[in-house]
């Protein structure tokens, strides 16, 4: 199994009047869960889309390494799974139909699919809802279906853009359990969130604000360094410091 890591250097991206990213450098290693933490407009989605090859940086580099060997993006593209922030499933297709659709897109064989499908439905506790159209799922279930579609192909890298936004606390917990399982399978997971309490659960955090990284590293050491009790405080302190 390949282990993919990503290294980005000085990424900048301008979208319309906004400087979405202003020089971001970071590296993402397998078997870790990276949290992109920041409010709306911090540049989280832009970074995700650049990592997925859906946007191209104005300047800077984005390198993909497979077992420490630099590889072209097209080579790793099919082993990266992505779950966009905005609703992107088909409201008129059922849970089962979504899974079949993605099976075909990823050219997964029938046998592997059956196994994977059963596994995912069990993990997400979605077995009873297989025939329900995506448009009639609750917020939490919708996100779970999105995650299932992303995980169907057993990816090496999983990019999740605000997977828990608008999801109730219980569904969020279930979601986190699923994420922990992924990193135990040596997968690189990068997720973004606007919930500050979720930052503490990541293996590493990148705290973003206005297109810049304002802090990065293990959640604990980041908090210690910034002398904040939690990430909510970190933002509030910055605000106060800015005002002074």
């Amino acid at each position: 199994m390949s282990q993919i890591s990503i290294q980005i250097k000085n990424l900048s991206k301008r979208l319309g009047p906004n400087q979405a990213l202003a020089g971001i450098t970071a590296s993402f290693e397998p078997a870790l869960l990276y949290g992109l933490i920041g409010p709306d407009g911090a540049g989280k989605t832009t970074l995700m889309r650049i990592l997925m090859g859906l946007l191209f940086p104005d300047s800077g580099e984005c390198a993909y390494l497979d077992n420490h060997q630099t590889v072209a993006f097209e080579r790793v593209r099919s082993s990266i799974a992505y779950m966009p922030q905005q609703q992107s499933l088909y409201p008129d297709l059922s849970v089962a139909e979504h899974l079949e659709f993605f099976r075909d897109l990823y050219l997964i064989s029938g046998k592997v699919f059956q196994k994977r499908r059963a596994e995912l439905l069990h993990l997400t506790r979605m077995e009873p809802f297989q025939d329900r159209p995506a448009g009639k799922l609750s917020g939490g279930m919708y996100k779970k279906l999105g995650l299932m579609c992303a995980l169907l192909q057993s990816p090496d890298v999983v990019l999740l853009d605000e997977p828990t936004n608008g999801v109730d606390p219980i569904s969020r917990r279930e979601f986190w359990d699923l994420l922990y399982r992924l990193i135990r399978q040596k997968i690189l997971v990068i997720m973004s969130t606007a919930y500050m309490d979720e930052a503490e659960r990541c293996s590493r955090v990148l705290v973003l604000d206005e297109g810049k990284i304002i802090a990065a590293g293990e959640p604990l050491s980041v908090l210690k360094q910034e002398k904040a009790g939690n990430f909510e405080e970190l933002f509030l302190q910055r605000q106060k410091a800015g005002r002074r």
Partner: peptide, 13 residues
């Protein structure tokens, strides 16, 4: 418009 293109483009299709 519904955003599904973003997901579609992220697949190998």
């Amino acid at each position: 418009e519904t955003g599904s293109m973003e997901l579609l483009l992220s697949t190998p299709v």
